[in-house]
Amino acid sequence: MLLIHCPWCGIERPEIEFRCGGEAHIDRPGQPGDLDDRQWADFLYMRSNPKGLLAERWRHVHGCGRFFNAVRHTVSDSFVCVYKTGEPCPDLEALAREGAQ
């Protein structure tokens, strides 16, 4: 069971307090009607699903109830960082280079 740091509560709590919300930074288009079917399908369904660092959404559902983002390595399952919703996505490639060192 993962141990997850909630940036809103400032504490670590076990995974069962959280719900994973899938890949982060897939913004809903402001004008969905302007997208063609292919673009809309990309938004709805296409995911990077990387073997490596992934920015993903978590919600502290049995805590503060708030969403936040986390960068996690999908092979080791270790968290690299957490940050609040609305903050920009860290440079995953740079983080990966750091992690490799």
Binding site: M1, K51, L54, T74, V75
Partner: peptide, 13 residues
């Protein structure tokens, strides 16, 4: 498990 992982392990729960 609820998250993406290539670890071939999962949670006890």
């Amino acid at each position: 498990d609820q998250y993406v992982s290539y670890s071939q392990t999962g949670g006890l729960q």
